[in-house]
Computed example of a mutant assay.
Amino acid sequence: MATNNSSYLVLGGTGSIGYAFTQELLQHQEQVTLLVRNKQKAQKLFGQWPTLQLVEGDAQNGDLLKKLGAEATHIFHGVNYPYGKWQGNMERVTQHVIEAAAVNKATIFFPGNIYNFGLIEVITEDTPQKPGTKKGAIRVKLEQMLQQAAEHNRCRVITLRLPDFWGPNVMNEGIAPVFRAALEGKPMPWLYRNDIPHQLVYTPDAAHAFYELAKLPQQAAYTEYNYAGEVLPSIKLWQAQIAEGAGTAPKYKLYPGWVFRLMGLFSADMREISEMGYLWQNTLLLNDDKLRRTLPNLKHTPMKQAIAETLAWHREMGELER
């Protein structure tokens, strides 16, 4: 059932984590307004729900965002841009989100990531943020903006820091090709190394964690949690499980680092990927003891079930696109 008198504005709802959070809200009969750039795409993704309102527009439209924010108790900031368009765009849209939340002193939900820390083995909420990349520095700035807004009593902010995520509608070029290739019996791609432990989170589990945090009594103005998801022994073993779920023989394709360095000489997008290469060459782990103390009954979808659900989503979407 819905939480009392809550109204959610979701930005980035047709993206990876925003999609999962919207589904979580709708299943609990929450009032949800989804700001989307393509209404037709959103209708195809979500179908009809009695508590869902779709508004077509751009999150960079500050006036529109403030108008929608006036009706919201919670704003989910899931806006993301391609790597090469982060600079400027991410800061501007985050400022618009803050202004929108300030209208009604809403709570902003922000999905954080591990870019803020550079190469460090274990990350807690107290780990100093020392990014070693341009995108890491941008992420630090976004979180500083949100924290300052909360500390100045303009809004509340809950940041849930996540590792790499996967699941239905996770369409980035690291994850979606793995599932598509498994269904087609083709080699499943990965970057740099597929033989070391890697941390991933299933997006419906992360969405559920966000929702459980929303139901808690008033907390501090700014709160940060890590969500560890699951540590895989290796991507190769995980891909073998995906192939098994798809009913195909496991095949693998590994893209080594030198490919991105070479292609980066000619392509800005490839340079952006090369800069983040350390994320695939090393094992970086989030510690989520704080979240587990706060939400001791947090659920975890069994891997076999999560894989089956994701494959089913890709099959269904593949049929719709034909």
Results as ranks from 00 to 15, higher is better:
residue 143 E to D: 11
residue 145 M to L: 13
residue 146 L to V: 06
residue 146 L to C: 05
residue 148 Q to W: 06
residue 149 A to Q: 06
residue 150 A to P: 13
residue 150 A to G: 12
residue 151 E to A: 07
residue 153 N to K: 11
residue 155 C to Q: 07
residue 155 C to E: 06
residue 156 R to Y: 10
residue 158 I to R: 14
residue 159 T to R: 15
residue 159 T to I: 13
residue 160 L to I: 14
residue 161 R to I: 13
residue 161 R to W: 08
residue 162 L to R: 10
residue 164 D to T: 12
residue 165 F to Q: 12
residue 167 G to S: 09
residue 167 G to C: 02
residue 169 N to A: 13
residue 171 M to R: 15
residue 175 I to M: 09
residue 175 I to E: 10
residue 176 A to K: 00
residue 177 P to I: 02
residue 178 V to L: 15
residue 179 F to E: 00
residue 180 R to V: 11
residue 180 R to S: 15
residue 188 M to I: 06
residue 190 W to I: 07
residue 191 L to Q: 13
residue 194 N to Y: 15
residue 195 D to E: 02
residue 195 D to C: 00
residue 196 I to T: 01
residue 197 P to I: 05
residue 197 P to M: 05
residue 198 H to A: 09
residue 199 Q to T: 01
residue 202 Y to E: 01
residue 202 Y to R: 04
residue 205 D to W: 10
residue 207 A to V: 10
residue 208 H to A: 15
residue 208 H to I: 15
residue 210 F to M: 14
residue 212 E to R: 07
residue 217 P to F: 01
residue 219 Q to F: 11
residue 219 Q to S: 15
residue 219 Q to L: 14
residue 220 A to F: 12
residue 220 A to L: 10
residue 221 A to M: 04
residue 228 A to W: 04
residue 228 A to Q: 06
residue 229 G to Y: 03
residue 229 G to P: 03
residue 230 E to N: 07
residue 231 V to H: 12
residue 231 V to Y: 10
residue 231 V to G: 09
residue 232 L to A: 05
residue 232 L to T: 05
residue 233 P to V: 01
residue 235 I to V: 14
residue 236 K to D: 10
residue 240 A to C: 15
residue 240 A to W: 09
residue 243 A to P: 03
residue 244 E to Q: 13
residue 247 G to W: 03
residue 247 G to Q: 03
residue 248 T to R: 01
residue 249 A to H: 08
residue 252 Y to W: 09
residue 252 Y to R: 04
residue 252 Y to V: 03
